[in-house]
Design a protein around this nucleic acid. Structure first.
Lengths: 249, 249
DNA sequence: TGCGAATTTGCAAGATTTTGCATTTATTTA
DNA sequence: TAAATAAATGCAAAATCTTGCAAATTCGCA
C-alpha cells in the first residue's frame, strides 16, 4: 500500500475518534507498529496531528497546542494591550519586537492610529497591514519559525539604523537582580540593538515572568521607563521592581 | 495501446480510488512498470496528479474542485507550482519574490524539501515556516500592504548581498517586444536587484500576462532561462516567446 | 513502399528509501 | 525502586528509484 494511503487512513481515523494508537493502526493497515510510528512522526513534523505516548491525537484536542495556549493568556494580553494604547501618540515612530503580547497591542489599535512601526516580528506585519495610516518597516534577517521573528546579525544591524520615540519590548523575564533577560540569545541581541536607538522603553510583561531570570542579559532595570503587566499597578508582586524612574501601569 | 489511452485509464482509476500503484496499472494495462512510471512522470509534470513513492495519488482529495469555476484560477497557479517542483534541487539557495503564484509553489513543496529561501514576500514566510528543512531569510524594507511584500531601497540593497542558484520570479507581464515588465516601480526595482545575483532565472507567469506590457522594464527575455505557465508547453500562445535559450514548460 | 531519424518501451545494474526486527534507552506504573 | 511498557536506535532485507542502453515502434519524407 502507498504510504500516502496510510496517511489518509490515520488522519481520517483521527477525525472520527479523536485519537489513534500504534497497535490499532498497525492492525488496520497490516504493517508493523514501527511503520505507523514513523508515519505518525512524519505527520507530527508536518503539523497534521499531535504525537502522544502510544499514538496520536488530533491537533486541536491537544491541550498544549499553540492555539489553546494563546487563548489561555488572551485576556491577560488584552489587558496589557489596552493599557499600552494611551502611550502611542499620533506621529510616533516605534520599535515593536517579538511575542504574542505585542501582536495583541496591534489588534487593539484604534482604526485611525497614525504611526511608523519598525519590527522584526513577521506575525505582526499582516495585523498592522490592516491600518491605512500605519507605515510598516520590516527588519530583515534569518526567520526563526518558533518565535516567528527575524533574528541574527543582519536584523541587529538594521535596527541600529533607526532612532525611535518608543520601543515596545515584548514579553521577557524581568527581575530586580538581573534586570531584563531573554531565553533566546539572538532575541536578546535584537532587543539590545533596539534599545540603543530608543528614546523611551516600554516593557510588556506577563506577571509570571516577574522575578524570573533567563540566561541572556538584555539590560538593567534602569534602562526601561514603563512596565506594563496585566496586574493592577499597586499589586504587591510588583513591589520588588519599584524604582524612582520606572513607571508601572 | 496508445499512450493517451493509458493516461485516461490512470486518471480515471485515480478518481475512483484516490491512488494508483505502478504494479497495479502495469497489470491493468499490460505494459511494464517502467512505462507506467514514465506516464505518471509526465502526468505529474503537467499537474494532473501527484507522484509518490510506489505510484501516484490524486492532486485534489475533494471531488468538487474539478468543475468549480471560482477555483479555476487557483488551479492554474497549482499547475504552475507543480511544474516548478522538479527545478528545485536539494541544497539550493533561491530567491522568491512577491505574488500568489510564488506562494502556491511553497504550498506544493514536498515535506522534506531542503532549501535556503531568500524572500521579501511576507505572505510567503509563514508558509515556508512549516518546513523543517528550509532556511528562510527575510529581506527587510518598507512593507507594502497591497502586495504583502517588502519594497524600497533597503530591500534592493539587501538582495544585492546574495548570489543564488535560482530566482523564482513571481507573476509579471512578459512580451516579445519589451521582455519582462512590472506594474509597480518598486517591485520592478527589487526584481532587478534579485536578477543581478541569480545564476538561473525562472519566471512564473499566468498565460493572461503573456504579450502584455507594464510601465516598468525589468529585463530582456534573454536574461531568463525558464518560463513556467499553466499552458501545455507547446501551446501556440507561447510561440512568440520561443527563443533558442528559453525553456518553456 | 522503403529508409533513416526520433521516440517509445522493456530490461538490468546500482543507488536510495522503506520496512520490520532486535537491542538499547526512557518513561510510566505499581 | 523494580517491573512493565513505550520509544529510539542500528541494522539488514526488501522494495522502489534512477540511469543508461538496446530493441521495437512510429513518423517524416522521398
Amino acid at each position: 500500500m502507498i504510504r500516502e494511503k496510510r496517511f489518509e487512513h490515520i488522519i481520517s481515523s483521527l477525525k472520527n475518534t479523536g485519537a489513534v494508537t500504534y497497535s490499532g493502526m498497525s492492525m488496520d493497515l497490516s504493517v508493523s507498529e514501527d511503520t505507523i510510528r514513523r508515519d505518525i512522526d512524519y505527520l507530527h513534523e508536518n503539523g497534521l496531528l499531535s504525537k502522544v505516548r502510544g499514538g496520536a491525537i488530533s491537533r486541536d484536542k491537544n491541550p498544549l497546542s499553540f492555539h489553546d495556549r494563546a487563548d489561555f493568556h488572551a485576556t491577560e494580553k488584552e489587558i496589557i494591550a489596552l493599557k499600552v494604547q494611551p502611550l502611542l501618540k499620533s506621529g510616533m515612530t516605534i520599535f515593536m519586537d517579538g511575542g504574542t503580547t505585542v501582536c495583541a497591542v496591534a489588534e487593539c489599535l484604534t482604526a485611525n492610529a497614525s504611526l511608523r512601526v519598525i519590527t522584526n516580528n513577521i506575525a505582526l506585519v499582516p495585523l498592522l497591514g490592516r491600518f491605512k495610516n500605519l507605515e510598516v518597516i520590516v527588519l530583515g534577517g534569518n526567520y526563526d519559525r518558533n518565535t516567528q521573528t527575524n533574528l541574527g546579525a543582519k536584523t541587529c544591524e538594521e535596527a541600529a539604523e533607526f532612532v525611535v520615540d518608543l520601543y515596545l519590548m515584548g514579553t521577557c523575564a524581568i527581575s530586580k537582580d538581573f534586570g531584563i533577560t531573554a531565553a533566546v540569545r539572538e532575541d536578546g541581541a535584537v532587543k539590545k540593538a533596539m534599545l540603543k536607538g530608543a528614546k523611551s522603553v516600554v516593557v510588556l510583561s506577563n506577571s509570571k515572568k516577574i522575578g524570573i531570570n533567563e540566561p541572556f542579559v538584555v539590560c538593567e532595570l534602569q534602562r526601561i521607563h514603563v512596565l506594563v503587566t496585566e496586574l493592577p499597578s499597586d499589586d504587591s508582586k510588583l513591589d520588588e521592581l519599584r524604582f524612582k524612574n520606572l513607571k508601572i501601569i
